[in-house]
Computed example of a mutant assay.
Amino acid sequence: MECVWTRNGSRCGEAASRRCDRCRAVGYCSLSHQVSHRSIHKIECDRFRRQMNRADVLSDFPFTFYVEPSKVQVVSFEKRCSFLARHGVHGLGMWICECSCGSSLINFDTISFIPDWLLSSELCPCNEPSISLQGRLSSWKDYCEWRHLPLSSPAAVILHWPLTVYWAIQLATGCNLLPEIKNELRIHYLGPEKELLQLAAFGELQALFPGVRIYIDFVGPAIPDRRSDERIDLHSYALCNDTACRCKTEMVSKSQAVRMQLHAGFYHDRYGEFSK
């Protein structure tokens, strides 16, 4: 954890040796920096405290790639590189950071939007679902049956991002932390890294929240300065590699597009700019 104290737009960045006693979510390198930052932090301290008090629910999220008792768990026992190579995606496109050898080579300053899965249509959700979502999804089995995907699909490696967002929102609404979702949903997504290569996969939120306008603000230091404030509108799902698939021409309505915006820097510094 780094010290969040800022001055004239510059962050301290030194290793934190103390935290806010109330929320435990932010750290400081010294008492003087904590005292100096108090007037800024107090605006958000209560909200951070409420979020930290519910941090334990993260351990119960069903949409992680490693815990589902299904064929998809093969990645737990097989080297990630060979798993990706077997599906023809090792070191390519959205999959570059999904193994240690690729992660060491990627330069986030040079990345741009990647629109496709590099998988066949049988292995990835590239079109509108055949039926609207009925009820709540609570497992990979539920999801794959709904989307007509095999449990062994490698797409789950990347789909756990939007599905975790989906599950977090289901928990929040169920616990009355959020009002009932009707026409619009705004999401603050903190600390994206390899997700920056996989933004197209967040188009799946169109299927998970049909008829809802979705806005996602991605905030984090891994976002290159040259892409800061970039806006991306997803009018389709991530594409498969079947040349004749209708995903190449099918578009969702503008009102249903997932709208994303990138913000370089730290959430504490940028929050006020896009939360108005």
Rank of each mutant, 00 (worst) to 15 (best):
H33K: 04
V35M: 12
S36N: 14
R38T: 12
K42S: 09
I43M: 10
C45E: 14
C45R: 14
D46H: 08
D46A: 07
D46G: 05
R47G: 03
F48K: 04
R50L: 12
R50E: 15
Q51I: 15
Q51H: 10
M52E: 12
M52F: 06
A55E: 11
V57N: 07
S59L: 11
F61Y: 11
P62F: 01
F65C: 09
Y66D: 05
V67P: 01
E68I: 03
K71A: 15
V72A: 11
Q73D: 06
E78W: 12
S82T: 13
H87G: 01
H87Y: 08
V89I: 01
H90R: 13
H90E: 13
I96E: 13
I96V: 10
E98L: 15
E98S: 07
C101N: 13
G102C: 06
S103G: 12
S104D: 11
I106E: 03
N107Q: 10
F108L: 11
T110P: 00
F113D: 09
I114Q: 07
D116L: 04
L119F: 01
L123D: 04
C124N: 06
P129H: 03
P129A: 04
G135V: 11
R136E: 15
S139P: 03
S139T: 06
W140M: 09
K141R: 08
D142N: 04
Y143S: 02
C144P: 00
L151M: 12
L151F: 02
S153H: 00
A155L: 00
V157E: 05
I158T: 05
L159T: 13
H160F: 10
H160L: 12
P162L: 14
L171I: 15
A172R: 07
G174C: 10
L177D: 14
L177H: 12
